[in-house]
Simulated scan of single mutants.
Amino acid sequence: MLNKVVIPVAGLGTRVLPASKAIPKEMLPVVDKPVIQHVVEEAVAAGMTQIILVTRSGKAAVEDHFDRNAELEQVLESKNKDALLASVRDILPAGVQLISVRQDEAKGLGHAVLCAATLTGSEDFAVMLPDMLIDTNSDTPDFQQMVSAYADSGVGQIMVEAVPPEHVERYGIVDCGGQQPAKGSSSPMHDVVEKPPREQAPSNLAIVGRYVLPARVMELLKTTAPGAGNEIQLTDAIKTLMQEGGDLNAFTMSGNLYDCGNKAGLLQANVAFGLKHPETAEELRSFLRTQKLDS
């Protein structure tokens, strides 16, 4: 059963400087939770019970966030602040284990994932990027749907979203044989290209930071040479898997994606999630109406 997810959190967060100078970018808030908590909750909802953080020095706050804080809990309990107590006590549900491994040098996403090889072993595993946040549009979140598609088919899944053609150079782009899969559905992948020039892109289907991968990918990463940006690319190992005849499907998401690794995406996520939060929705909606009228 798929239950392990690798979440690389070793990045420097340069796109959100100076906010990330002393605070890990994964700890920047979206409403009342850091981005990493939203992602871990998404993983747990999809059945992940072993959360593997690939981290580095200076990221202790990420691990600390998921630890118990006995002093804080005691203060909240003494003041009968039960809702707040529950919100800090139940960050990591019972039965879910969080493990950290170190990435000693920044060598790309593929290298970060490979750092977790001893923990995933011979099992299939998931990968989630912590700066990509998905606001679901259905009762069942996209990642949960994708994990279900893997369980039903036994085929690895990579989440994609159609992006404007002028943006394909920013992403890994998949080729589904000219098909444009419907939202919430999977389609066989024929190829994947890391950040292709617009005129060479096989489609506009961009990988959005959610993967369910066969164990073979971890083995392939061990011999994957540096690629784009002189880094070890996860997409290169995935490409090799397909060249070997391995099956992979592209799962098209239906929710809204926010790249919280940049300033605009982080602000957009706060607005979108703030409009759904019971404590902030009314005041935020009123404020936004005022701003619209003023503009």
Rank of each mutant, 00 (worst) to 15 (best):
138 S>M: 01
21 K>I: 11
66 F>M: 13
109 L>P: 05
91 I>Y: 11
268 Q>T: 05
56 R>G: 10
166 E>N: 07
274 G>L: 03
238 I>H: 13
128 M>Q: 07
147 V>N: 03
36 I>W: 07
7 I>Y: 01
156 G>R: 05
292 K>I: 07
110 G>W: 09
233 Q>H: 09
212 V>K: 02
45 A>M: 15
190 H>W: 07
82 D>P: 00
100 S>L: 09
238 I>W: 13
75 V>S: 08
222 K>A: 15
121 G>A: 13
99 I>H: 10
152 D>R: 12
48 M>A: 08
179 Q>R: 13
29 P>S: 07
32 D>C: 11
20 S>E: 09
219 E>G: 11
131 D>H: 07
185 S>V: 05
34 P>T: 13
195 K>L: 04
169 E>C: 10
145 Q>H: 06
50 Q>V: 09
37 Q>S: 12
225 A>P: 07
200 Q>W: 06
155 V>P: 11
107 K>E: 14
226 P>I: 15
178 G>P: 09
14 T>P: 14
105 E>W: 13
259 D>R: 08
18 P>H: 02
165 P>A: 08
206 A>I: 11
59 K>S: 02
82 D>Q: 11
280 T>C: 01
78 S>N: 10
55 T>P: 14
106 A>C: 14
135 D>P: 05
186 S>K: 04
141 P>G: 03
73 E>R: 04
244 E>A: 06
263 K>Y: 03
238 I>N: 04
162 A>S: 15
143 F>G: 05
135 D>L: 11
214 P>S: 02
23 I>Y: 00
168 V>S: 01
28 L>A: 15
91 I>Q: 14
48 M>V: 13
224 T>V: 01
231 E>V: 10
41 E>Q: 13
213 L>S: 09
24 P>C: 07
189 M>C: 11
23 I>V: 15
287 F>N: 03
234 L>A: 03
58 G>F: 08
166 E>H: 00
77 E>H: 02
119 L>Q: 02
195 K>I: 09
290 T>D: 00
168 V>M: 03
178 G>H: 12
47 G>Q: 00
97 Q>P: 10
187 S>W: 11
